[in-house]
Design a protein around this nucleic acid. Structure first.
Lengths: 210, 210
DNA sequence: CACTTGGTGGTATGTTTGTACCATAAAAGA
DNA sequence: TCTTTTATGGTACAAACATACCACCAAGTG
């Protein structure tokens, strides 16, 4: 046999091609052929590594879910120099606002999958429920911590505020994807909202709008 | 000729069939055949009234946009007994949270179109930019009015608050569509958020969560 | 009564899709 | 060296799709 290829590497290569194709033409327009062309391999190879289209789509969704987790954790760690709840919350929520092209591709395809999962029973197997629920718990914990530390209004309902934060983040991210708003504006609005929750002074570098 | 049919009625009938099919199977799975079956007419008739599939999809999108406007106006008028900004804002924003099946169908297909419009150049012709911009202006006006009347914290930035309200509304609505949250919970969270903006006492019937 | 025209059904056609099948080069194991 | 595997390309095929085409029926119009 030729070169005893690393299967995982090949699979990742093909999945990335699917992500690019889906971001460009839409997830609905993705075909075995278009993925093969994008990955610069033969259609037969796509079949070889994923067998069926459904499995390819499922594998890509799985990869998206994994990378979403990584992205959020990376953000937390990057802002981790300061363990202030406010900075952690801001970092996590800003992840949903796509800035660079890579981020945009990622979130667009993720959103396409999310919407698709509503009608397609093969998808939606909890992949879109685990993430947000986890995020909600994280936000509640951070808000509660900030309240105990006196950095957030103690009169707030941490759970409802967390749900609101998640919704604002998702809503702003979606509006950016739809081209209704610039990423910078969305980020500014998000920081404005955080400033109304966290009473503590501004610690991070970026100004808090105005 | 048979009975000299009302064209607009027939077109509406077929468009409604498309909406049902799209809500059930997904917009990507909609075909001339499936629409014809759902509308209980022959494929030829769908061709006759819409010529091509692209035009059918476009006509449906147009109808969605029109009905979205009607829905919001209806809400405003329904809550119009009280012209209090708070009630108007609440009514408008609650529209994005699907409760009954009809509302769910509508918002699901609307969302599918919105996501589709990102990658499909034939769509997205401003249809998804006009609505939100208009809404934003309405919200800004209502917030400013409430501030002048002393019913809202005068220290708030009306524009940024309006953007946040829109994002919360869209984000909550999306989470309900994705099955992450019950419609009732989403509505409760929205009212909780409004209670933090409008200082005035509760006027409408529904309690303001706690 | 002839005949044009609006409404409808059925069917044919060319294209695209996912997938199955056949072949083969080349490394690894005996 | 002979024979399995592993990895790959090419092609074939049935299904589904959008759309074009043909036929027909019935209601108005002259």
């Amino acid at each position: 046999m030729p070169k005893l290829v690393d299967h995982e590497e090949r699979r990742a290569h093909i999945v990335d091609a699917l992500l690019r194709a889906a971001a460009r033409d839409g997830l609905h327009a993705v075909t075995m052929r278009s993925v093969a062309v994008e990955a610069d391999v033969s259609v037969r190879l796509v079949q070889y590594y994923f067998d069926t289209k459904e499995r390819l789509l499922l594998a890509t969704l799985e990869r998206l879910a994994v990378r979403m987790g990584e992205r959020v954790r990376d953000r937390v760690r990057a802002a981790g120099a300061s363990t202030a709840p406010r900075d952690i919350v801001e970092a996590v929520l800003l992840e949903a606002v796509p800035t660079d092209e890579e981020s945009r591709t990622f979130h667009l395809v993720y959103t396409e999958y999310a919407v698709l999962s509503v009608t397609d029973p093969a998808l939606g197997g909890g992949s879109f429920l685990a993430g947000p629920a986890e995020m909600e718990d994280l936000l509640i914990a951070q808000l509660a911590a900030a309240q105990r530390a006196g950095d957030a209004d103690p009169g707030l309902d941490a759970r409802q505020e967390a749900v609101i934060l998640l919704a604002v983040s998702a809503g702003l991210g979606l509006s950016v994807l739809l081209g209704q708003r610039a990423a910078g504006d969305a980020a500014a609005v998000l920081r404005y909202h955080l400033a109304r929750i966290f009473t503590g002074g501004v610690k991070s570098g970026a100004a808090t709008v105005r």
